[in-house]
Amino acid sequence: MAKKEYSFYPGCSSERKASASNYMVSIESMCKTLDIKLNEIPDWNCCAASIGYAQGGELPRHTMNARNIALSEKNVGNQDIVATCAACWLGAKESQERINHDKTLFGDINNILGEIGLKYEGKQNIRHMVEVLIEDFGYDELKKPVKKPLEGIKIAGYVGCQTNRPFGVHGESFENPKYLDKLTETMGAEAVEKYDQKVTCCGGALAFSEPEKAYVQINKIIESAYDFGAEMIVTPCPVCQMNVEVYQDMINKKFNKKYKIPVVYYSQLMAVAYGASAKEAGLDGNVVRATRLEEIAAK
């Protein structure tokens, strides 16, 4: 398999001692197996996330993403930009689309970036890591390196919002995307086909500002996973992962439940199936431990 290289936008949550640091650990392991080289955008900054709209408006918010795109162009302009975080991917992609289709905005951006010695062209594709996996590799290629099939684990594929809408993954529907289930099955686990909350919103940033409202959403997402017999939830998004995992005790108190379900990243499933240790798969970063995966990793 030929080595593949991408310009890489890891994003704030992927940093050491940040909320998705274990996602990053598992991505590194997965990429090592698949022979993917990720060229980190030098000195990348925050994408401003969705909540950035309130103070950041339009131009300041797009400027944040334009700096990253310009830095990527300067570094490895011939490579696609790949993001692992749903919000980073969406933020960068949305800004690029706006800037490229609006001459005034394109002019403003270059005027502003010019002052810090950067130039924006916006010609690279901006892709989420799951697009790279599905489109540049494909399920058959992804299956080849599987050493330890995740046999007998029933997993609910929680796709969430921002890798699914408004752009989504090519060829998938907004209401019932299948790629996460297919990835799960490719790794030898069982996907919960009827899981009916796979594209329900977890509350996003409102888990911070309006926790009571977000907990109602998270409760639905977890309850349905249990109802369909899942013993684990898998997701492609750091916000989904955190919201669905870390507030389980709060939700247990509020809704009188006994939830304790691991919420893992697709890359953690892949790392374990590809033979990584629990540490290499970032499983020590899960607040609700994924013991079934840890057992397989230890074999």
């Binding site: 940093e15 050491r16 001692k17 940040a18 909320s19 998705a20 640091s21 274990n22 000195d43 990348w44 900054n45 408006g57 131009l59 300041p60 797009h62 400027t63 944040m64 700096r67 403003d108 005027n111 502003i112 970036l113 002052e115 810090i116 020590d284 970063g285 899960n286 607040v287």
Partner: peptide, 30 residues
């Protein structure tokens, strides 16, 4: 405990090297 939150976050100097550039561009964009 799972190393997903930095207990020293209040005092750490973490961030971009180009923070002055970022502030400059945001000021102008605003």
């Amino acid at each position: 405990k799972t190393k997903r939150l930095d207990p020293m976050g209040m005092v750490s100097g973490h961030g971009c090297k180009g923070r002055a550039d970022i502030q400059k561009m945001i000021k102008k964009a605003t």
